[in-house]
């Protein structure tokens, strides 16, 4: 059995959770076992059907006071209870901060290795892996891949976001098993004490925007963001920046896109004066279309983009803004 830890929001399972379920199906083909899911806390309407539509045959639903607030250790206690009761060959979670945290707790509790940010299963190259599961995962912020062996059961791993596409299958019939695992006092200590809603204009706007206009070193200084901010406003989008911009103190950290900032997946990302270091690419690679504006036609941002304009952002962006206004009359 492959157990998938599913995260939910108001709309049901999160997209990355459905990607993890899809990955679990690929894994289940090798182990010839079924795919189960674990849901902790409230069970959104329609979630079970949604999971069944992705091949989940059994949903383990952890309930109880222990789960009234999130905590890595309490979630791991729930996963561990299912692993023990249902004999999981592998446990899969989305590569989100929570998915990574819960899997790290689980791996520590079971004293087994954990593979973070897996993108695929390793090919059998004829070598003797001693029954270990071979996975491929992202290292160096995605700049390199590592083939790694997980020699002990259960194999514990997280699936990197957008490494696989969530795929539906003809719906199977899924059963729901409610359970209330015992949670040790020590595990309750590290739950969230309080949550203050993020200010609406902070990074939430960036990660949910359909259009993001980004600016990097090419902005030249704190005063160099007027045109890109105007373009973002004209397109109803959000402003994002590269790491150099925040480390120079030109713009606040919540606007940062990249490995140590926000990961965005807009329909259109307009990257102005950004060279496209790997760490930045890690945050914007999921954009559907990328338009790069850069003086250097060989900059990685340009060569990896869908479209490019070669030129100084301080000349190109005002011209784009003027053209948009002209056409709008």
């Amino acid at each position: 059995m492959i157990l998938t830890v599913v995260q939910t929001d108001a709309g049901g399972a999160t997209e990355v959770s459905l990607e993890a379920v899809t990955f679990a199906r690929a894994l289940a083909k090798r182990t010839l076992g079924p795919v189960h899911a674990l849901v902790v806390g409230p069970l959104p309407d329609g979630l079970v059907d949604q999971l069944a539509g992705h091949g989940v045959v059994e949903v383990h639903h952890a309930t109880g006071d222990a789960f009234s607030a999130y905590g890595g250790a309490v979630w791991a206690a729930a996963v561990q209870a299912v692993v023990a009761a249902a004999d999981a060959d592998a446990v899969v979670a989305p590569g989100t901060p929570r998915g990574l945290e819960v899997m790290a707790h689980l791996a520590a509790r079971l004293d087994v290795p954990m593979a973070a940010n897996v993108v695929g299963l390793g090919e059998d190259d004829g070598g003797d892996d001693g029954g270990a599961l071979r996975v491929v995962r992202q290292v160096m912020g995605g700049a390199a891949l590592e083939e790694m062996l997980l020699p002990r059961r259960p194999a514990v791993l997280t699936v990197a976001g957008h490494a696989v596409e969530a795929e539906q299958v003809p719906p199977v019939s899924a059963t729901v098993t409610e359970f209330s695992p015992e949670v040790a006092e020590a595990d309750l200590v590290t739950r969230v004490v309080s949550t203050e809603p993020a200010e609406p204009d902070l990074s939430g706007a960036l990660t949910s925007a359909r259009v993001v206009v980004g600016a990097g070193r090419g902005a030249g200084g704190a005063a160099g963001f007027g045109d890109v901010a105007e373009l973002a406003e004209l397109l109803g989008g959000a402003l994002g920046v590269s790491r150099v911009v925040t480390s120079m103190g030109w713009r606040p950290h919540h606007e940062q896109i990249g490995q140590t900032g926000s990961r965005i997946s807009p329909d259109l990302y307009i990257a102005c004066g950004i060279s496209g270091a790997i760490q930045h690419w890690a945050g914007c690679a999921s954009s559907k279309t990328i338009l790069a504006v850069n003086t250097d036609e060989n900059a990685p941002m340009v060569t990896k983009a869908t479209y490019a304009v070669i030129g100084d952002m301080h000349e190109v962006v005002p011209a784009i803004n003027a053209e948009i206004r002209r056409r709008r009359g």
Binding site: L145, E146, E147, M148, L149, P151
Partner: peptide
């Protein structure tokens, strides 16, 4: 660390 090898994308 269970590393078999590194590869580049």
């Amino acid at each position: 660390a269970g590393r078999v090898r590194l590869t580049l994308p």
